Amino acid sequence: MQKGIKFRIYPNKGQKAFIHQTLGCCRFIYNRGLAMCKEGYEKGEKIGYGQTSAMLTELKKQEEFAFLKEVDSIALQQSLRDLDRGFVNFFQKRASHPTFKSKHNHFQSYRTVNQKDNIRIVGRYIKLPKLGYVKVRQSMEVGNIHHVTIEHTPSGKYFAVLNVESEPEPRPNQGGTIGIDVGIKTFYSDSNGNTVANPKYLERSMRKLVREQRRLSRREKGSHNRDKQRIRVAKVHEKVTNQRNDFLQKQSTMLVCENQTICIEDLHVKGMIRNHKLAKSIASVSWAKFFEMLEYKAVWYGNEIRKVPTMYPSSQTCSSCGYRNPLVKNLRIRIWECPGCHAVHDRDTNAGINILKKGLQLQSA
């Protein structure tokens, strides 16, 4: 299988200039191809990768576009392939219609393919097409590299995302089964009665973020000081993202290492975020990313992920006798007594037990 590995790179001044030149050329070709597709649609013609690729070849022959020959040709072709993939996803209703790229977007990237071993790691450097040897901070060993994506982030940092071959071996685990009920106050409660607190990284950084945002709003638009302040704001957001990702990685790895079967809720997070009162808290806790990590790590290491239907009343059902108490639908009720068997339940732990039971029923069905 293939997976992505992200390393930070440290290009010199000349390499930075070339990276931005390549980003600009890729953006220009992408927008040119998108305009060509729109014109063809208005005329009733279907424009695909073949036509846009031929357009790129013709542009390179013209003297006014000679700058396109200076950058990596594969990166330009890949930008057109991205455009073609964007239209495929749009027509298959997996994504919105492709839009024009802007140079004012502070996150930019381009992708190039490894051909004849022109992308490889040599010591403390990574060799990239046209760029040569760039200093890299390598944190793990890599296998055969298929392609690499060069990213420039809003905080001004540069990264290389390597797509490499990987053969993960199933890890021995304790063979347990567990049900997970995610929440906002507590990140999750499991069927064993354990709870993991929500670290609330965004909320804890909110005071600093508000201060930096206020300073940014006072800077004159287009000034150098405003750009420096924008980077300070981006660094606050980046730190929150890194803290959250580190937390999610550790929690998902721990669950996969300790359990063979993990039962979770099939939540429609995108729909839940439409609740304007809870949207910020739901986005901050990042359930969708947590579930995604559990799923791909389960594939890597031979675990099972069982999804319980969205509308299953896990919090309202008594885990002892099965009685359904509709009053528990109120989120303010955290501890309740079952009218049927008089068992006292913690709302989240009871939900975790019910999710586990339902998941195992789905497994045996």
Rank of each mutant, 00 (worst) to 15 (best):
A298D: 00
D181T: 06
Y323I: 03
R124G: 13
K93N: 08
S166V: 15
H342N: 09
K157G: 01
Q251V: 00
G123I: 01
H20M: 14
Y110C: 06
C341L: 09
R204T: 11
R137E: 14
M254V: 00
F18P: 09
G193Q: 06
L131H: 01
E63L: 05
F90P: 00
K93R: 13
D190L: 04
K101L: 09
I74Y: 12
I121T: 12
W287G: 02
T261K: 05
Q213M: 08
Y201I: 02
H97C: 08
A35Q: 03
E212N: 11
I273Y: 06
A75I: 10
K157N: 12
F159S: 07
D181E: 05
R111C: 11
T57L: 14
L360D: 00
G40H: 04
S217P: 02
T186R: 12
I150R: 11
P309N: 14
G193K: 05
R306F: 13
G14N: 15
C338M: 06
L23Y: 05
A351T: 00
K3I: 07
L327H: 09
H152E: 08
S205E: 11
K60V: 02
S189D: 01
D348M: 03
K235M: 13
S314E: 11
L83P: 04
S73I: 07
R211W: 09
S315M: 08
K38Q: 11
I145F: 00
V71P: 05
A365K: 02
A197K: 12
I180H: 03
G143H: 12
G14S: 12
T261N: 03
Q62L: 15
K135I: 04
E151Y: 11
L131M: 04
I335V: 14
K60E: 07
T52Y: 10
L216G: 03
Q92I: 07
S166W: 15
N330V: 11
H146V: 09
N114G: 07
N192H: 13
E292F: 06
F290V: 02
L209F: 08
S166G: 02
I262F: 00
G14C: 07
D266Q: 13
G123M: 04
Q15W: 13
T186N: 14
Q138K: 15
Y188T: 02
D190R: 01
E220T: 14
K43L: 10
M254W: 07
A351P: 04
E304M: 12
L267N: 13
V136D: 04
V344D: 09
K16E: 15
Y110E: 04
R332H: 12
G340H: 12
E42T: 10
I126E: 13
G179Q: 04
D72N: 14
L248R: 00
T310R: 15
Q361K: 14
L294V: 02
S109F: 01
S315V: 13
F91M: 10
A160S: 09
R137K: 15
D227Q: 14
S286Y: 06
H276W: 02
C37M: 10
K69A: 06
N118P: 03
K43T: 06
E258P: 00
K277A: 14
Y323T: 11
D266H: 08
G40I: 00
Y312N: 09
D348Q: 06
